[in-house]
Structure formats: C-alpha cells, structure tokens
C-alpha cells in the first residue's frame, strides 16, 4: 500500500509565551506587536477525540503575520498557516 496522502498546512509545534489571559506575547522568540484576530474552533465534540483550539492571528515585531493556536485539549501551542 502506498503512503497516505500528504496534508498541506499541518500544524507545527511553536514556542509561544502568553500572558495569564492566554494572549500570545512572543512567538518563536519574536515579540508580538499586535493581535489582529482571535477565534475558537470546536469540532468532533461528539467523538472520543474532540478538537478544541483557540486561534490567534498576530503580527510580530519584525512585521510577520503569524497564525498560532492553543490546543485546549492537549495543552500545546502550534503554528499554522
């Protein structure tokens, strides 16, 4: 059997520092200048593997637009674009 299909935009682990409210302050060592948008994605809550993510679209100090999310089930930060 050939290997499975390759997914595009798979989440990559990221190092994020956040404040007590969960707002990102630094992404991979780069300070966050502005938070452009935030949204919550909840899916598959009816299965044994629910998906719950808090997404943040931020602009870092060097001007890059980055989307990161906090996995609210597994408790980790990921970068995704």
């Amino acid at each position: 059997m050939s290997p499975g299909p390759r997914r595009i935009a798979a989440p990559q682990p990221a190092t994020v520092q956040a404040d007590s409210a969960g707002i990102p302050l630094q992404v991979d060592g780069r300070a966050v200048d502005a938070v452009r948008e935030t949204w919550l994605v909840e899916d598959r809550w009816w299965t044994e593997r629910p998906l719950r993510r808090r997404y943040w679209e931020v602009v870092t100090h060097c001007g890059r637009n980055v989307v990161v999310f906090r996995d609210l089930v597994q408790r980790g930060w990921y970068r995704q674009r």
Binding site: P5, R6, R7, A9, P11, V41, R81
Partner: peptide, 22 residues
C-alpha cells in the same frame, strides 16, 4: 511522489489541515 497535485478534500472546513491534500 515526484509529481503531485493539490486535491481539495473539504475546502470549507474550519480546520485548515483538513482542507486540501497532495
């Protein structure tokens, strides 16, 4: 895998990695 195409699986999914595969 030398020649692949982008195939839309679920383009309207709110979860980005589910939208397209190669």
């Amino acid at each position: 895998d030398a020649a692949l195409r982008v195939l839309e699986i679920d383009p309207d999914s709110r979860v980005p990695e589910r939208r397209v595969v190669l």
